[in-house]
């Protein structure tokens, strides 16, 4: 019974539009997070010196802290 309902929903163009748009949005956001996170971890692993630099001459704010802050 419910399988018939599922079948009807699956072929509905509105369902397909919703799924593809929502899916694309979710994967885009996930990709951004994953790239930022592992990019950051690669930086920690391979070039830690860069993160220690201050954002400006005479400032006490290190790059590493500043880029993590938006969390």
């Amino acid at each position: 019974m419910s399988s018939v309902m599922y079948e009807r929903m699956r072929v509905n163009p509105k369902f397909q539009k919703l799924v593809s748009e929502r899916g694309r949005f979710a994967w885009t956001l996930s990709a951004i997070v994953l790239i930022l996170f592992y990019g950051f971890f690669m930086l920690v692993a391979f070039n830690p010196g860069l993160l220690a630099k201050k954002i400006a001459e005479g400032s006490m704010w290190p790059i590493g802290y500043t880029i993590e802050l938006p969390d």
Binding site: F41, M42, A45, L51, A52, Y65
Partner: peptide, 25 residues
């Protein structure tokens, strides 16, 4: 000293750093 606000010895080795990141995430 100034090294306090820099990535230090905790994650000195890249494999450990990435593995830790994966495990926690």
């Amino acid at each position: 000293g100034p090294k306090l606000m820099a990535p230090g010895s905790l994650l000195a080795d890249p494999i450990t750093a990435i593995s830790l990141g994966l495990g926690l995430m």
